[in-house]
């Protein structure tokens, strides 16, 4: 069974550490070491969270000399900033799942007859 990794804003911000990272760099870009200094978890663990944030389009990395600075892409956050849009997306996903379920059990019932 393969579980497809979802890379979207929801996943990005569902983790408390990632939310803290976004809050941290929301108003000033920071390099990885500076970000990691704010957390008790290991640097690779922080790095992994940043990787997810980059993949979700929440953070971009800017190279400056030998340093890499992480910037929050707040526009991405603004796109989903309305709860109604989030909630609509949530329920539409649920209803897709309900649709599959209803089709499945009705097909099972028919083949039993």
């Amino acid at each position: 069974m393969s579980v497809e990794a979802r890379r979207d804003v929801f996943q990005a911000i569902a983790d408390p550490t990632r939310r803290q990272i976004i809050n941290l760099i929301a108003y000033q870009s920071m390099n990885l070491n500076a970000i990691a200094d704010n957390f008790s978890i290991s640097r690779p663990a922080v790095s992994q969270h940043i990787k997810v944030l980059i993949e979700c389009g929440m953070v971009s990395v800017r190279q400056e000399g030998r340093e890499r600075f992480c910037e929050a892409k707040l526009d991405t956050l603004k796109e989903v900033a309305g709860w109604v849009d989030q909630y609509r997306q949530f329920w539409n996903t649920q209803f897709d799942s309900l649709d599959h379920y209803l089709n499945r059990i009705q097909n099972n019932t028919q083949s039993d007859q």
């Binding site: 929801f10 911000i13 983790d15 408390p16 956050l77 989903v80 900033a81 709860w83 989030q86």
Partner: peptide, 9 residues
């Protein structure tokens, strides 16, 4: 509160 860092009821 919601896991979203924005205004969610």
């Amino acid at each position: 509160t919601s896991p979203f860092p924005f205004d969610f009821p």
